[in-house]
Amino acid sequence: MRQSTMPALPADSWQGAYAFLRRFQKLFVICAIFLIWELVVRYGKVNPMLFPAFSDVVASLLHGLGIGGKPELWQYMWETLSVILQSFALSVVLAVILTSLALASSLAKDFLSVITGMFQPLPSIALLPMAILWFGFSRESLVFVVVMSMVWPIASALTVGFATISPTLVRLGRNYELNAIGTLTQIMLPAALPMLIAGLRVGWGFGWRTVVAAELVFGATGSSGGIGWYINNSRLFMNVADGFAGILLVIIIGLIMESIFLFIQQRTTYRWGTEAA
C-alpha cells in the first residue's frame, strides 16, 4: 500500500476548517448561485438582451450607484425607502393603538378581529385603483396601499403577543400601580416583543413587496419614481441589466432589513431568553 506523503492535519485543524465552512456556508451558497448564473449566460445559449450575465448586472448596479456612472439609483432608492419607512412608522402606531384598544374593550377586540380577517388576506395592491381615485397620483396613494399591507400582520402578531403574556406579569404591573399607559409601555409591549418583532418582519416583507409592485403599476409619484419605476423603465428602454440591477437592489435592501431585525432580536429577546435563538 502506498503511503501518503501528505502530513496528517491535527484534529483541531479539521475542526477549525469545518467551523470555518459552517460559518460561511450561506456565503458559499450565494456565491455558487451567482457563479452558475454567470456560467449559464456566458456559455449557454442565452440571449443576454433578455437575461444578462451576473457580472453585467453588478456593473449596472455599480454604475447606478455612481461607481463609474451617474448615481441615479440613490434617488430611486430613497424614494422607495422614504415611502416604506413612513408607512412602516404609521402602521406600527396604528397597530399598537388598535391592539391596545382591543385589550381595553371587547367591542374594539371584535372590530379588530373582523377587520383583520377582512383585510389580511386581501392583496393591498388591489386597493391601488381606489387609492388613486381618492388621493390622485400622489405619494399618499402609495402610503395608503403600503400601510394597508403592513398594519394587519403587525396588529395580528401583536394581538397574539398580548394574549400570551403571563398573567403574573400583568398582576405585577397592577401590584405596582401602573396606569394603562404604564402597563402598556412597561409590561405589555416589552413582554410581547418576540411576537411584535415577528409581526414587524412579516409586515415589512408585505410592505416591501407592495411598494415595489405599486411603483411598477403606478410609476412616478410627484416628480420622481422609486425602484419599481426604475425597473419598469429599464424594460421600456431595453436596458435589461439595469432592470436586474434594480431587482438585485430590492433583494439587497430586503437582506439588510432582515439583518437589522436579527440584530434587534440578538440585543433583546434572544438575550432575555424570551425567544429561542
Binding site: T168, L172, N175, E177, I187, P190, A191, L193, W272, T274
Partner: peptide
C-alpha cells in the same frame, strides 16, 4: 379595593420577574 404597593405580592410563578 384594588392592588397597591402597600401590599406587594410574591407569586409562586417563576415568571414574575421582568425578563428584560
Amino acid at each position: 379595593s384594588k392592588p397597591s404597593m402597600e401590599r406587594i405580592m410574591v407569586f409562586q410563578d417563576f415568571q414574575q420577574l421582568l425578563p428584560w
